[in-house]
Design a protein around this nucleic acid. Structure first.
Lengths: 109, 109
DNA sequence: GCTTACCGTAAGCAGTGACTTACCATCCTC
DNA sequence: GAGGATGGTAAGTCACTGCTTACGGTAAGC
């Protein structure tokens, strides 16, 4: 878990691969055909996604099938859900405070 | 909006600044004091976060106050909520399908 | 008005990382 | 077992980007 999930999803190509796996589990070669990058590039992206806990892989005969990891996706969802609650609370609090100017003499607010 | 929100949150420092703004709106200089990077670096990160729609800024006399943008945070949350639903459905479907081997003669599945 | 504080931007640099080709291992097919 | 298919890894290149210092511009304080 050296990669943070959000770092893993920061790259556009990796995000595209990730979203593609949302539709259906896929083999590496099939994914590579769907994107304008080489197969090794896809392999490397999958490695990062796997390291971040966002996907899991499974051997299927000759091929290796990648699919989303519900735990990882759920964790990210939970993160943003909580973040949303905090943001909402903070914003509500800010809205209730009438547009006061934070002067220097109010620094101890 | 040249920056995708997830791209903006991909960088650790930027993520830290973002999460710091979760606690309270802050001026650029105050943020810079809280992180081991220079003030211009913080300024650049805030620019990216703002471009991604994750924060908004407001002039307050001499200072410039940054805070979270509820719309942007909500959009990311909604994205992952929907993604979670899809992932769950896909995973459930995969679970219902007993571990069949995707042979070549089953390609037309 | 002059000085100080705050902050955005420009320029330059170094590290990272995304990508490619080349190679090797494993598995299935005949 | 030979050949083909699939995919992970190594090595190398190149663009990007995160960081710094330097500078300019605006607002507040004396």
């Amino acid at each position: 878990m050296t990669y943070h999930p959000l770092t893993a999803l920061g790259d556009p190509t990796r995000r595209a691969i990730f979203e593609r796996l949302l539709e259906s589990p896929s083999a590496v070669g099939d994914l590579a055909k769907a994107f304008p990058v080489s197969r090794p590039a896809v392999s490397q992206h999958l490695k990062v996604l796997k390291d971040a806990g966002l996907v899991i892989d499974r051997q299927d005969g000759n091929r290796r099938i990648y699919q989303l990891n519900p735990d990882g996706v759920g964790a990210v969802r939970a993160y943003f859900d909580e973040l949303w609650d905090q943001a909402l609370a903070a914003f509500k609090q800010a809205a209730e405070t009438p547009n006061q100017r934070r002067q220097h003499d109010r620094a101890g607010d």
